[in-house]
């Protein structure tokens, strides 16, 4: 009998094989983005700078921005995502354990998901006075249902074959959950983190437009009031880079945590 591992490298560990894989330069991505940047620069030469500023202006704006705002926005996103995850996971576990709770709860969650973000922002402004709470409220109310639905679907998707196998060994309820349901749901959990991370970064800037005196959203408001298109582009660039970095980080985490996948 031959094992894939044997075929590959005479019994070496998977980790060793992974470690030997050379870094692949993302050539297509870099060329595509560079082409866009060149096109941008060419357009900036043809139109006034208050419409499309050149890269020189944008980088000068970048140097002058309050970079502490980036950290503040990131802190808001991370805190709200953690709260949303705990809340979403907790409710998913309860709904998984109790069918009636799920039957009554699902429509409410769907209702929450159908409400546009801008409406949640208006509710937050009308209901709450404290700005940080407003922002956290909007982020949690948008992200927690995504965690809940994705994690619950992941839990319910555990194959009957595996559930029957484990049940044949008579696990306790806790063991059934910790040894089977939770690890089997890990791919769904990571997917929901990926979805929510980009969602939260886009939503937090809108939430910060209303009432906040710190953060990237506030920075965008100031840029708009000063008619500084270069500043708006600089903030946008920062947001896009944050999103790319966060996605790359999650992809690394996923690769590591889900290395058991074929």
């Amino acid at each position: 009998m031959i094992v894939k591992r044997d075929e590959a490298a005479g019994g070496e560990t998977v980790e060793a094989l992974e470690a030997r894989q050379p870094f692949r330069f993302p050539r297509e991505m870099v060329i595509g983005l560079l082409a866009l940047a060149v096109l941008w620069e060419m357009v900036s030469m043809l139109v006034p700078p208050f419409v499309v500023p050149g890269w020189g202006r944008i980088f000068r704006s970048l140097a002058g921005l309050r970079l502490d705002f980036v950290l503040i926005t990131l802190a808001r996103v991370v805190a709200a995502l953690l709260i949303s995850f705990v809340l979403g996971l907790g409710l998913a576990v309860v709904m998984y354990a109790s069918a009636p709770f799920e039957r009554y709860g699902r429509p409410i969650v769907r209702l929450f998901m159908a409400v546009p973000v801008v409406c949640w922002i208006l509710f937050a402004v009308l209901w709450f006075k404290w700005v940080e709470f407003r922002i956290a409220f909007v982020l949690v109310v948008v992200c927690a249902p995504v965690f809940l639905v994705d994690v619950l679907d992941g839990m319910k998707g555990v194959s009957k074959d595996l559930r029957d196998m484990l049940r044949s060994f008579r696990p306790s309820r806790t063991h059934f959950f910790t040894k089977l349901v939770l690890p089997a749901t890990l791919p769904a959990i990571l997917t929901s983190w990926k979805i929510n991370l980009s969602l939260a970064i886009r939503v937090v800037t809108i939430a910060e437009l209303v009432g906040a005196v710190t953060g990237i959203g506030y920075g965008l408001v100031v840029a708009q009031e000063l008619f500084s298109v270069a500043d708006v582009f600089a903030w946008t660039l920062i947001l896009v880079v944050i999103l790319f970095l966060a996605e790359a980080l999650l992809a690394r985490v996923e690769e590591r945590v889900l290395r058991w996948r074929a």
């Binding site: 009998m1 031959i2 094992v3 894939k4 591992r5 998977v14 290395r259 058991w260 074929a262």
Partner: peptide, 15 residues
């Protein structure tokens, strides 16, 4: 014995 650290997808059906 040699395959205790292998994940299922690395093993043949018989193994």
């Amino acid at each position: 014995a040699r395959f205790e650290r292998a994940y299922p997808h690395e093993l043949s059906g018989g193994m």
